[in-house]
Nucleic acid binder design. Structure first.
Lengths: 189, 189
DNA sequence: ATTTTCATACAGTTTTTTCTGTACAAACTT
DNA sequence: AAGTTTGTACAGAAAAAACTGTATGAAAAT
């Protein structure tokens, strides 16, 4: 097998995984092409510079800059440092759990909190309205109906808060323990 | 307080909540305007027809049709039936837990499964490559390095699978019980 | 059987998001 | 101090997503 073929097979193997990554990375609020960037950094032998990324992905350096920032915010890549190298260096963060938890918590905890706040305010307004003396029966009934609806949502948000806490407190790992990777042994044929 | 004012205050109260909903509904892979549609249906006195929705939201009937479909797929609205009414009628599904679980599971379980499959195939290809007789040392080292990276991902996906199972099997509700809504009592002033 | 009513597929338009090239400020080199 | 190199802000271009109006087929009413 010549050099070219073996390189091609290596690329092919990597491509299979990267392609799938790009398909699902939007779950992390990250666009497909930035997902591909992640794959590129993942399989790079060494930490990469923005210029190397641009070279490898065929995209602009500007996009690499914004892409890497998005990946950093999701805890998917981290900045590294190497003596004598002036450019920023990036490599993937090996802790997939952290990335998942970061994104999951950031999204749902914020949504739960804000919705809950809005819900309470709406509830307060409705209750105030209902207590008005000379309220038409129709409006009063609708307000009561609204409160009923909202109490369903309220219960859910309470629950959702506890779920996000489960991840934030890392208690989830007591329930479903982290898997330790099995070190891939070099097997002989 | 006249009729107009009380109606306005009702609308204002509802608007506060709906506005917040639209801000976070994208977590369910649903666009803002469809989120607003959800809010409209939520506070409607009765199940709504597509025409009523179009009227209320000021959008086209076509958008109502596609919007309602998206909401149905997320288990957020359900079709109803009323004697003598030929049009389709929709109302919100009161089970917020189900909507959350549906979306959470659909997204992450699919991602986990597909990524895991790609991962195993990539791993197989790399292992095959490594076992080639006359492989350049450099390629071999890179392939080994890749396998190392992938085993980290593999462990995570195993874990993620268990997490989605937690929701799918409803075991999550043993850990964090559903809250029962407190029936809003009509309080006197 | 004909007509009416309804939901939705589809093509084209509008809006939003993503991407690029230029410009510039900060940090480093000489 | 003057000159490079590097990362990113910003405006405009390109691509993607959302929305609308027309058209059509299915179901109900006449």
């Amino acid at each position: 097998m010549d050099m070219e073929e073996s390189r091609a097979r290596l690329e092919e193997a990597r491509e299979r995984f990267v392609h799938e990554l790009t398909n699902h990375i939007h779950l992390y609020d990250i666009s497909g092409s930035v997902g591909r960037l992640y794959g590129t950094i993942l399989f790079a032998e060494n930490p990469m510079t923005l210029d190397e990324m641009a070279e490898k992905t065929g995209m602009s350096k500007t996009s690499m800059s914004t892409g890497v920032r998005a990946l950093s915010e999701a805890n998917m890549v981290e900045k590294t440092w190497r003596k004598g190298v002036r450019k920023d260096l990036y490599q993937t963060d090996p802790d997939w759990y952290k990335a998942f938890a970061t994104v999951f918590i950031k999204r749902w905890a914020e949504a739960a909190e804000m919705n809950q706040r809005a819900l309470l305010e709406t509830k307060a307004k409705l209750e105030q309205l209902i207590q008005e003396e000379d309220l038409e029966k129709e409006v009063q009934e609708q307000a009561a109906h609204d409160l009923e609806k909202l109490s369903e949502a309220e219960a859910f948000y309470d629950w959702l808060n506890e779920v996000t806490n489960l991840f934030e407190s890392e208690a989830i790992y007591s329930i479903i323990p982290k898997r330790t990777k099995e070190s891939p042994l070099h097997r002989k044929a």
